[in-house]
Structure formats: structure tokens, C-alpha cells
């Protein structure tokens, strides 16, 4: 059995499978959608209050887990930089040729540049392989949490969650 996240720090795909914030494969295949990797009852709800589409529900008791309604998600990306736990990603599996994109929050500096080759890492920080940065966003409202979108093979779309710069 693989050890769970209370020992290793990272969520396993097994733990995430039943998560209320994970959109279906069918939804991911239709275009970009939020993937919320938050499975602990901590008192927190900026994801819900920042979602204008009403796609994320935490509810009155703010320790409830965020539930995602994938069909309502309009992929506005707001939750990705607003989540204080950096636990929300935006995944798009609708690209042709077995490709996908993953958007992740990023608070390290320097930022890579659009077009740069980087190394995609999984939740354990293990190397998956090469990826390309296709978009970087950083505005005032994001309060220094940039978002970086990388393009990866589709089979990594639910695994690639960090990057390492090539130096």
C-alpha cells in the first residue's frame, strides 16, 4: 500500500479520486476546468467567495470541503490564485494530439518566460519530464501569486502539479 498524505505530505491519486473538488474526465475533456485538491476540514472559503460562476460550494460551515460543479465552472482562473493553500489547478484535456494543459499557482522567483522549456514534477516532486510554459499571468489583484500554464502529454494532466526551471 502506498503511504497516505499524512506521512508523505502529498495526496495520492487514490485519495483524490473521491474528492468533491475533482471534475470528471468527461468534463476535463471539454475544456479548462478547476481541479480542487483540498481534502481536509480546515476553516477556509476564499475559493467559494471568489467564484462568480457559483461553481464552488463550501457552505455556511467553512470547514466543509469545497465541492465543484464542473458544468458551472467557466475557467476564469480566479480560484487558482486566491486559494491560500495553493490547492487549485486548472486542467484542460481538450487539446488535440493527446496534449493537455495544467495551470498552477506559483510563488517562486524568478518566473520562467512564456515559451520556456521546464521540467514537470508530480505531487511528490518527482520528475515527470519536459513541459513547455505557454502562459504566465501576474496582475496586481493576484497579489504576487502568479499562475503558470504548462503544456504536457495528456497522461500527465492529473499528475503534473509543479515545475522546476532548467538552469
Amino acid at each position: 500500500m502506498t503511504p497516505d498524505s499524512s506521512l508523505t505530505g502529498f495526496l495520492t491519486e487514490e485519495e483524490l479520486k473521491e474528492g468533491p473538488g475533482i471534475p470528471s474526465a468527461a468534463r476535463r475533456g471539454k475544456g479548462p476546468v478547476a481541479v480542487i485538491e483540498c481534502l481536509e476540514d480546515i476553516p477556509c472559503n476564499p475559493c467559494e467567495s471568489s467564484c462568480k460562476a457559483g461553481a464552488i460550494v463550501v457552505g455556511e460551515d467553512i470547514t466543509q470541503l469545497p465541492h465543484l460543479d464542473g458544468d458551472k465552472c467557466i475557467a476564469c482562473n480566479t480560484c487558482v490564485h486566491n486559494c491560500p493553500g495553493q490547492a487549485i489547478f486548472m486542467v484542460d484535456e481538450s487539446l488535440p494530439g493527446g496534449r493537455a494543459t495544467v495551470m498552477m499557482p506559483y510563488e517562486y522567483r524568478p518566473l520562467p518566460a512564456e515559451g520556456d522549456g521546464v521540467i514537470a514534477l508530480d505531487r511528490a516532486g518527482q520528475v515527470l519530464g519536459d513541459a513547455t510554459v505557454i502562459k504566465i499571468r501576474q496582475t496586481r489583484r493576484m497579489d504576487r501569486t502568479a499562475t503558470i500554464t504548462i503544456e504536457v502529454p495528456k497522461k500527465w494532466s492529473m499528475r503534473a502539479r509543479a515545475i522546476r526551471l532548467k538552469t
Partner: peptide
């Protein structure tokens, strides 16, 4: 590494996930 005598990580899971994906072992 981040070490702890306790059998389980004490902090919030999302904080732990952030450092774990940067390759820091617990």
C-alpha cells in the same frame, strides 16, 4: 527534509502538499 517525532504531519495538508511537490521529503 522536514522531520517530526510524531507519526503524522501536524500542519495543514495543503501547506504540506506545497512543499512536498517542491521535492521536500517528510
Amino acid at each position: 527534509a522536514i522531520i517530526d517525532a510524531a507519526p503524522k504531519i501536524g500542519g495543514y495538508a495543503v501547506h504540506a502538499a506545497k512543499v512536498a511537490r517542491a521535492g521536500v521529503p517528510f
